[in-house]
Design a protein around this nucleic acid. Structure first.
Length: 474
RNA sequence: GCUCCCUUCGUCUAGUGGUUCAGGACGCCGCCCUCUCACGGCGGUAACACCGGUUCGAAUCCGGUAGGGAGUGCCA
């Protein structure tokens, strides 16, 4: 059995789509699983739409996810000589021919076919042309077999049969001489010795034509596996309006690459009831035979859940690095507050993305801390004034601003006033964070730091004092 | 229109003729834990598109219907 070789062949005509990533992942996993090679090939034969920035996006995206190629990237734009050589050879051998039909003529033909309820296809009118038509730059068409059938033994779809009579003579070289997709794919997959073509569902219809071209080349076609599509959360084709489809958006929003991979691998593939797969498990367990045949809808909530699972499981120092970047992204400076790793430790169970974590920890990195009016009204009441003053004194007296020391101080106050820890905890939290939600109060105070904590407590005490006087006055 | 593909809870899926009045996960609801919020634990909600056939027996096999999707380009 020859070594498995798969390839991911995106065209740089847009962003690196989340659906494309899933395809890349399956190709990569399959190669890794079988100890084979994974090849990256950039299909940039469309010179109009191919852009260098899109190539960068592809490379960056794959690198971020850890999907590493053993070969490539190859660029089709650099392989024109190979394509041209085959076009010439096929022309000589009669496997291809020049077609002089104008776009208008083709259009009229299609209209007529449609009107007649026929399958729309090129009717081969230039097949037997003896003489070139002067003044027209012809395209080159592949001479597809007229009859018989092409059987695709698809690894996920099973046996799919196409009639050659339904296929037509596709263009392999444009009038400017440039080769087209269906042709270059075949040449490349052969040249690069690809053994398994794993790609999106949308290519299933191209497969019989490609098999015919492998035949013309005189070589055996690779195995094919067509993956079901990924739809948006409303069942429609995935697009911008479903939120993020660009893989870079996920990095920016604070998703962990292993969470994205884990989410994607479970779209169209499963291993019993298992939900969490680290990359090593995926590569050990993945098999094309377990890929299902139906399209799946993208579910942002589940991705969020998975991301949090990974946040919970990831060591604090790495989380800290990522959180530091997120803080920067929202205009905060990690140097203006606690070590982001400590914040991550306190917030890993409280945030689904690192971006969310940064937003929630804003109060740790800014001097200003606006207290939510409603919360102040609810929790910063005169009854708590004395306990708050007391705990403020105890905290100020601490020579060690540690969680346990802070915790002791709070408990002492609670005991002294014979109140529950919650009675003092929530006002403290409001005072020090501005809101009603944060990690355990001792952790929170530790993160905010002594200076800011005391200052904010003073502000809260002033606020309550004023409020108490107002009450007395009225 | 024509060709091809698909169809289990709202969503991702398990299930490959009987051990399943269908299991897990996300979401949602409830309870527990608890200084808040989470996390965690426990419980609940909810599906075999439809109609025929094969079979002692079908979510599982076959046919049809309906619905969805892809392709039908000098795009990939």
């Amino acid at each position: 059995m020859s070594k498995v070789r798969t390839r991911f062949a995106p065209s740089p005509t847009g962003v690196l789509h989340i659906g494309s990533i899933r395809t890349a992942l399956f190709c990569w996993l399959y190669a890794r699983r079988h100890g084979g090679q994974f090849i990256l090939r950039i299909e940039d034969t469309d010179r109009e739409r191919s852009k260098p920035e899109h190539i960068d996006a592809i490379l960056d995206g794959l690198a971020w996810l850890g999907i590493d190629a053993d070969e490539g990237p190859y660029y089709q734009s650099q392989r024109m000589d190979q394509y041209n050589a085959v076009v010439e050879r096929w022309l000589d051998e009669g496997k291809a021919y020049r077609c002089y039909c104008s776009k208008e003529e083709l259009e009229a033909m299609r209209e007529a076919q449609k009107a007649a309820g026929e399958h729309v296809r090129y009717d081969g009118r230039c097949r037997h042309l003896e003489e070139p038509k002067p003044g027209i730059e012809p395209v080159v068409r592949f001479r597809n077999p007229l009859d018989g059938e092409v059987v695709v033994e698809d690894l996920v779809r099973g046996r799919v049969v196409f009639e050659n009579a339904q296929l037509d003579d596709l263009i392999i070289a444009r009038s400017d001489g440039s080769p087209t997709y269906n042709f270059t794919v075949v040449i490349d997959d052969y040249d690069m010795q690809v053994t398994h073509v794993i790609r999106g569902d949308d290519h299933l219809n191209n497969t019989p034509r490609q098999i015919n071209m492998f035949e013309a080349l005189g070589v055996a076609p690779p195995a094919f596996a067509h993956l079901p599509m990924i739809l948006g959360s409303d069942g429609a084709k995935l697009s911008k309006r479903h939120g993020a489809v660009d893989i870079r958006d996920y990095r920016e929003q604070g998703y962990l690459p292993e969470a994205v991979l884990n989410y994607l691998v479970r779209l169209g593939w499963s291993h019993g009831d298992q939900e969490i797969f680290c990359v090593d498990e995926m590569t050990a367990l993945f098999d094309i035979a377990d890929v299902n045949q139906s399209a799946s809808q993208f579910n942002p909530e589940k991705l969020l859940w998975l991301n949090q699972q990974y946040i919970i499981a990831t060591p604090a120092d790495r989380l800290g690095d990522e959180l530091g970047k997120q803080l920067g992204a929202i205009g905060l400076d990690a140097d203006d507050g606690p070590d982001p790793a400590d914040v991550a430790e306190g917030y890993r169970e409280r945030a689904q993305t690192l971006r969310e974590m940064a937003e929630k920890a804003r109060y740790c990195y800014e001097d200003d801390c606006e207290v939510d009016g409603k919360q102040a009204k609810k929790h910063l009441r005169p009854v708590i004034l004395e306990p708050l003053k007391d705990v403020r004194e105890k905290l100020a007296a601490l020579d060690d601003w540690s969680e346990s020391a802070i915790n002791n101080a709070i408990h002492d106050t609670a005991d002294a006033f014979d109140i529950n820890i919650g009675k003092i905890g929530q006002p403290l939290r409001i005072a020090v964070t501005g809101g009603p939600v944060s990690p355990p109060i001792d952790v929170t105070l530790k993160l905010v730091g002594r200076e800011r904590s005391l200052a904010r407590l003073d502000a809260a005490i002033d606020y309550i004092t004023e409020r108490a006087q107002g009450q007395k006055a009225s």
